[in-house]
């Protein structure tokens, strides 16, 4: 019976050794979702959405997320249409073949900040601001990494050649093209929460964790049931197995 566990342990061991990063390891923070059965703090994620819209969205897209998905954060359809209508996008060509802008609606994906990849690069000194939909999954220990990074802007140590970027001790190579985006009080929270830098960052990371893994809560709650079921089934199968084999020995 230990063979499965054993092979799994060996595998985990191999993977625990698979880490060779020169940048500083991100600081571990206890998010609402950090524990295996943790959930997304909806209020925090809603505030994070506000930070994203008012600060990040000017450069970073969120194209895999649709406004309708915001129902998952507790917004209703009217609220979602109100959020979406702040953004404009190209409509389908009309009967004359002209493309006219229209306001985004419920069913649209988050509107991208730039017309295309090159326009995004040109507007940002040649560094493309990556889409944030999957950022938490696209980095190792993503939530902690993004939090550490956004809090990790400091002056470069003496003699460190920065060039055109900014110094950040959590970035691989310690040079990041993005200037420090958040300083605290960048937004005025609708729910009255004090918008300190750390608060903003935690809220944003909570929001981005949700955009990366909208399935997180469903997955964990379904998982708990499935594992419990399989556990019971395994015991029953084991008992059946022992019964059947005990007949053989006689």
């Amino acid at each position: 019976m230990n063979i499965f566990t054993l092979s799994f342990l060996i595998l985990s061991f191999i993977f625990s050794l698979v880490s060779a990063d020169e940048a500083l390891k991100p600081e571990q923070y206890p998010f609402s979702f950090s524990k295996p059965l943790g959930k997304i703090d909806k209020n925090s994620a809603q505030r994070g959405l506000q930070v994203y819209i008012e600060v990040c969205a000017s450069c970073h897209g969120l194209k895999h997320v649709a406004y309708r998905n915001l129902e998952g954060l507790g917004y209703n359809k009217d609220q979602i249409n109100a959020i979406a209508s702040q953004f404009e996008l190209d409509d389908f060509p009309n009967d004359e073949g002209e493309i006219i802008k229209r306001k985004a609606i419920y069913s649209d994906s988050f509107v991208e900040p730039y017309e295309n990849h090159n326009a995004a690069k040109a507007a940002n000194n040649g560094a493309y601001p990556p889409d944030l939909s999957l950022m938490v999954k696209a980095r190792k220990d993503g939530a902690n990494y993004i939090r550490s990074l956004l809090l990790g802007y400091t002056d470069a140590p003496d003699g460190f050649e920065i060039g055109e970027g900014y110094y950040n001790k959590y970035m691989a190579g310690n040079i990041i093209a993005m200037p420090q985006p958040l300083y605290g009080d960048d937004v005025e929270y609708k729910d009255g929460t004090n918008a300190s830098l750390e608060q903003e960052v935690n809220d944003l990371v909570t929001f981005l964790t949700w955009t990366s893994m909208p399935d997180l809560e469903d997955r964990r709650s379904a998982g708990l049931k499935v594992i419990f079921f399989l556990f019971v089934m395994t015991i029953l199968f084991y008992l059946s197995y022992r019964k059947i084999w005990s007949e053989l020995k006689k």
Partner: peptide
């Protein structure tokens, strides 16, 4: 009974 329970679990699964 054990065999029946096992079978039922299998069908549910």
């Amino acid at each position: 009974f054990i065999h029946q329970a096992s079978g039922a679990m299998g069908i549910v699964a």
